[in-house]
């Protein structure tokens, strides 16, 4: 709002109201974090707000020493990282194809993608579980025919569809794909066709064009798509809850949740430190993703 120069007192009054309101909202937003931060440095942390005494870093160090912490981090990074890479690969190619193709089913397909995005994940857990269970039996008999009996279980922890890295990775990728596809499609729409056509005239085939011309141009769109896929899969709690049970595969959200359910012997200091380290990647990614946020509601990322 552009102002000319109203009386000094008028500006002052209105700005005071603005500062006061925004301060209240900021306090509301920050207040729940106060306990988390204090408890993470407190040797005798409890559920209640208190000044740390004595201060300690052991809660943070413990994450990498005690059972749990490091393993949970590793699992989360493996599953969410792989899912993000799959999303980038598939959405990059698919988004490009969607932007360039001229087929009758393009519009219905785009509408379907939007509708897929509104499907609530809790509504999918039962059929997903049943489908993956059936698939898991097939994978299981295949694995049993390949490896010795004692290595079946370790193998299934990796390639199993239920209680295995592979199944959860695929589910995360499928859940994040519609938004990523949408972002990439609208992003490629803003890139002129001239570059590809020039490469085509020079005799490059489709895969050379993708690798040498299109992929480098797509980087900003891929960044946005990857950030949103990562944030959303990193924070997800429902799918690991349904699909994982082995302690070896425990991921951060589930490990944290199960740990603070144990009514006795909750180590609040340890859990708070873990929660802070768990939220850090999401917060950093969100900081980068912030400028693309509006487009996820209303269209795509503009070049």
């Amino acid at each position: 709002m552009s102002k000319s120069k109203p009386a000094f007192s008028a500006i002052f009054d209105r700005d005071v109201v603005a500062y006061a309101t925004l301060s209240l909202i900021s306090i509301f937003c920050l207040l729940p974090f106060v306990w988390l931060i204090l408890a993470s440095f407190d040797k005798n942390a409890s559920l209640f707000l208190r000044w740390p005494s004595p201060w300690t870093l052991n809660n943070y160090i413990g994450i990498f020493v005690r059972e749990g912490g490091a393993r949970w981090f590793f699992n989360s990074f493996v599953v969410v990282g792989t899912a993000t890479i799959i999303v980038l690969l598939l959405a990059g190619l698919g988004g490009y194809a969607l932007s360039r193709m001229k087929v009758w089913w393009k519009r219905p397909f785009l509408y379907t993608i939007i509708l897929v995005r509104v499907v609530p994940p809790p509504a999918l857990i039962v059929p997903l579980y049943k489908i993956l269970l059936t698939g898991n039996e097939a994978v299981g008999s295949f694995v049993r025919s390949l490896v010795s009996p004692e290595s079946v279980r370790p193998a299934m922890l990796v390639v199993g569809l239920i209680d295995g890295y592979f199944g959860l990775t695929l589910v995360f990728a499928a859940m994040q794909l519609p938004l990523a596809l949408w972002i990439m499609k609208t992003y490629f729409d803003t890139i002129p066709h001239d570059y590809e056509e020039a490469a085509l005239v020079d005799g490059a085939n489709l895969f050379q064009r993708i690798r040498l011309v299109i992929a480098p141009l797509a980087l900003p769109g891929l960044a946005a798509a990857g950030l949103f896929a990562f944030i959303s899969a990193w924070g997800d709690f429902l799918m690991p809850l349904i699909l994982l049970s082995s302690s070896e595969l425990q991921m951060l959200p589930l490990g944290l949740f199960r740990a603070f359910l144990r009514v006795q012997q909750i180590d609040y200091g340890f859990l708070s430190a873990l929660a802070i380290l768990y939220m850090l990647p999401a917060v950093i990614a969100f900081g980068f993703a912030r400028r693309y946020f509006v487009q996820t509601f209303s269209g795509g990322v503009k070049a």
Binding site: C29, L30, I231, G235, L252, P253, V283, F286
Partner: peptide, 15 residues
């Protein structure tokens, strides 16, 4: 104001 939005849901529940 953005911070609460960026926090994973389990951490939000915990705090």
């Amino acid at each position: 104001i953005l911070l609460p939005n960026a926090v994973p849901e389990v951490v939000a529940g915990y705090i």
